[in-house]
Design a protein around this nucleic acid. Structure first.
Lengths: 207, 207
DNA sequence: TAGATTGTTAATCGATTAACAATC
DNA sequence: TAGATTGTTAATCGATTAACAATC
């Protein structure tokens, strides 16, 4: 019944359900219906039920899904049960906000290094993590088994940082700068862009 | 040829193209091909050409699209040529990072107010914008014609802030907190979530 | 001209939606 | 039991992809 390999669409949707479930658990809820997940994800409730039923019968008719159990099932399907080490680049306002947020830690992503080029920041701490000199990227990525780089740097620094990460064998980059990054195939870049969402939300609200 | 009203999918994709074009222009490029837009958006190049050709023949065969001209066309289609006023909630690291970024201003979204509840922050400035007391939301939203609220507050403050915004007739909320927001129909919430992208990117990289 | 890229068609694939029996 | 929600089917709709003539 379950496919060998998830399609991109299914994997993306399962990740989205997992986020909602994680937050739902934090709020102390035990069960959730496909309709409730739909309200938060904007994904059709029938689609949600079908995505899940492809891997097993996780729900209880008349009740919904057990939040804890479903988190476990989706983590297993996404092979996301483990811990992963990530690094943040840039110890400015954005880098500090990311580093102090629990959103990554809640989902098994441990921030194990913060890099900056400003000598006055190097050696200071953000939360529990020390700010390291950017020229140590290669060494630290290897030693601490960092598999994701999060860019919270100015636009003009984003490409050089990405290049360094790729040279150090990092294959997943999360880009919070506005810059468009050129990367070789095999490297995944996700660029965060609030304006995309705003523009199209406003189209439907102002028209 | 052009539809009366864009579908959600087309509006979302056009917004995405517009972001790439804006950044491309910043980098001083005059022309761009559908293939290049595809590399940055991960949207199929044929899809891009078809989306655009539904509204006119904007491209030059053998050359691509003129960046400036295409920005103008998409803004016109999305009715996004004007300026809109937005407010940021929370003057912490994240709120300051958002307020100092040019990403909103580059696209016609002017940050005209920052709200916080911390008396030591009220009256200070972030960039050019003064931090205002949160209890003035209702008044300021009306006076300054604010149509979007950006939440950079702790998870447990997000719902009360959203409620205040909705009471003040704001209908578009951008939520940078991890909290799941309950809002009435007619209000659009977008919750930013880096972990969704990371989980599914890693699924394909680690498997 | 030669090479490149658009605009467009047709075929396939995946998402959405409505409907409803099963069952908690 | 009665009400609610899952699991599943079938129909429709939109996205993706390959292919290629038109043309810059």
């Amino acid at each position: 019944m379950a496919p060998e390999r998830l399609t991109v669409g299914v994997a993306a949707r399962l990740s989205h359900y997992l986020q909602v479930l994680t937050q739902t658990r934090k709020m102390g809820h035990d069960a959730i219906s496909s309709q409730e997940i739909s309200e938060f994800t904007h994904i059709n409730a029938t689609q949600i039920r079908r995505d899940l039923s492809g891997f097993g019968k996780f729900g209880k008719r008349g009740v919904g899904y057990n939040v804890d159990a479903l988190i476990g099932e989706i983590r297993r399907i996404l092979r996301a049960a483990g811990q992963h080490n990530i690094a943040v680049f840039g110890a400015g306002n954005l880098g500090q906000a990311i580093s102090r947020s629990s959103i990554f830690a809640d989902n098994g992503f441990n921030i194990v290094a913060i890099f900056d080029t400003d000598p006055s920041k190097i050696g200071t701490s953000v939360g529990d993590v020390e700010v390291l000199a950017f020229d140590r990227v290669d060494q630290v990525v290897r030693e601490r088994n960092i598999i994701v780089g999060v860019l919270a740097v100015p636009d003009n620094a984003a490409q050089p940082v990405a290049d360094s990460l790729i040279a150090a064998s990092v294959r997943v980059i999360f880009n919070y700068s506005g810059a468009l990054l050129h990367v070789p195939s095999g490297v995944t870049v996700h660029t965060s862009n609030p304006v995309v969402e705003l523009l199209y939300a406003l189209y439907f609200h102002l028209a």
